[in-house]
Structure formats: C-alpha cells, structure tokens
Design a protein around this nucleic acid. Structure first.
Lengths: 136, 136
DNA sequence: CTTAGTGCTTGCAAAACGCAAGTACTAAGA
DNA sequence: TCTTAGTACTTGCGTTTTGCAAGCACTAAG
C-alpha cells in the first residue's frame, strides 16, 4: 500500500491522479474510445512509453482501469474503466469545461459546446454509455 | 508564456494545476478560509516552503490567485481567489466527492455529508460565499 | 524461421521535489 | 536604537521523477 499525505479526500484523490498524465489516459478511454497501449501513445501530448506503462499499472492497481487480453488478438491488451473509473466522469467534464472557458487557444468542439449548453445532460449521456460498455 | 502540450482543454488545465499541490492550496483558500503563506504551511500535508512559493507564483501568474498586502499588517500578504479561481469550485467539489466515496480512510465530515446529500446546493452556496468575499 | 505488431523495460541525462538552513523586510518592546 | 519576533521567502544539496532513445519479449502470420 502506498502512503497518503492526509485523510483529506482531495489530497487522497490527488495522491492517485494528481499528475499531468493520468487524467489524459482516463480522457482517452472515457471520451475517445481508446483501449490499447498503442492508441494511448498516439495522442497529441506524446506521453513517453515508460511513463505510460507506469501510469497504466498505477491506474490498474488503484482499480480505475482493468487490463484484459483482447479476444480478437491474444498479443494485445484491452484497457477499460471500472465503476470507480467511470465515476471520474464529472471531474473530467468539469476540468474540460474550465479549460475551454479560460483558454482562448482551446476551441470548444462538439463535446465542448454540448457541455457549455447542458453539462448535466452530457454527464448523464456518457454515464449511460460507459456503464453500458462496462456490461460487456 | 509557457508551452502547452496540446489544444485539448483537459490537457491545458492539467498544464496549470496538474500536480499534487496546486489544488490543495486552492482547497485551503476556497474551503478553509486560509489566506497567507504561513497558514498554507500549517496544512497537514506539509508542503515544502520552496514548492509553496513556486506554486503561489504560478497560480498568481495564471490569474487564479491575487496577492495583496494585508491592510492590518504591512509585512503580511493576503492571497484570494480571482473569478477564474472561484470557477475551480465544481472541480474541487467533484474531486472531494470521488475521494470520499472511494477511500475508506477519508471520513466524510460535515461538508462531505452535505456534498453527498445535495452537491448542487453546496456548489451554489460556496459560489455565493466566494463571490461575496471577492467583492471586498 | 523470418517479419511485423504490440507492449513493455532499461539506461541515462535533465528537471522537479523535499528538507534544512539562511536571508530580508516589518513591527513592536526595552 | 538595539533586540526580538513574525512573515515570507531563497538557496544548497541530495533524492526522486520525468523524458527520450534504444532494446527486449511475446504472439501471429507468411
């Protein structure tokens, strides 16, 4: 078990995903349908391979992601969100909304516009979608 | 200006507060009424003085915090949230709720219970309070 | 039995962090 | 005026984390 800095829930959360990369991996799984190591590497932020491997193992150990062998290709792994991981959805959406609001160079695309218009509806929609996927 | 990794609003947000300390300082100002360097140092997570000084300067440069000389004591500085900083409230509340839900060692105290019961009401209440303070 | 795809691990230099100590400015008391 | 206390940092230095390039291991297909 790893050490926590305090019993504050914010501090404990940041002990898990308080870095520049973990939530980007979550974003890729949650909003972009990415599922494999190779797909995460393709993202425009260009995460290093050792950092990616480390973060995936931490997120798996924290029961935020599950790693399974791909049914289609036995040399491939598939990562998916657990219920605990799915519950990060409101955090991801709020961070996205704040970032779009205060960065002129972050244009709101389709999802960003929907969030601005009706955040609760977006969260509800993605919850249903992600929980549906999780039943597989 | 500092370099951003991409034009994704989540990535841009994490470029600003994606570390283990920044949001704890925001928490202290936002939820605990802390306003000074010395008060931030007292928090149970024990931030190092150089890290605190660095994060305060970053948050000030990002227009999330404002630093002013204390009217009561000219050798003391007072930090307060800007409107941009106040808009981090939903993120902080969502992180707090997630952390409390999934950490057995993070008991929900008064605020945590209120969030569980009616998150929207808590956010509304703190928005009013923080915006009221900001008018001073 | 070689080649491609996929998912890592390793080595090493650079950056960030964490701790202890020191500095600078203001204020108040003797 | 000299000292002491309070507040807010800054500096030095050893440790940890990150970032980049390269290499390795396993599976599948030709």
């Amino acid at each position: 078990m790893e050490k926590t800095r305090s019993d504050c829930p914010i501090s404990c959360s940041l002990d898990v995903f308080g870095d520049k990369w973990s939530l980007l991996i979550i974003r890729d799984v949650m909003l972009r349908g990415k599922v494999s190591y190779g797909q995460f590497l393709e993202s425009e932020e260009k995460i290093a391979t050792n950092i990616l491997a480390n973060r995936l193992s931490v997120l798996e150990a924290e029961n935020i992601l599950i790693k399974r062998v791909s049914p289609a290709n036995r040399s491939k792994f598939i990562y998916s969100l657990t219920p605990k991981g799915i519950d990060l959805l409101p955090i991801v959406i709020e961070i996205m909304d704040w970032g779009a609001k205060y960065n002129a160079n972050c244009p709101r695309r389709e999802l960003g516009q929907k969030i601005k218009k009706d955040k609760a509806a977006v969260i509800k929609e993605y919850y249903q979608k992600l929980r549906g996927d999780a039943e597989q």
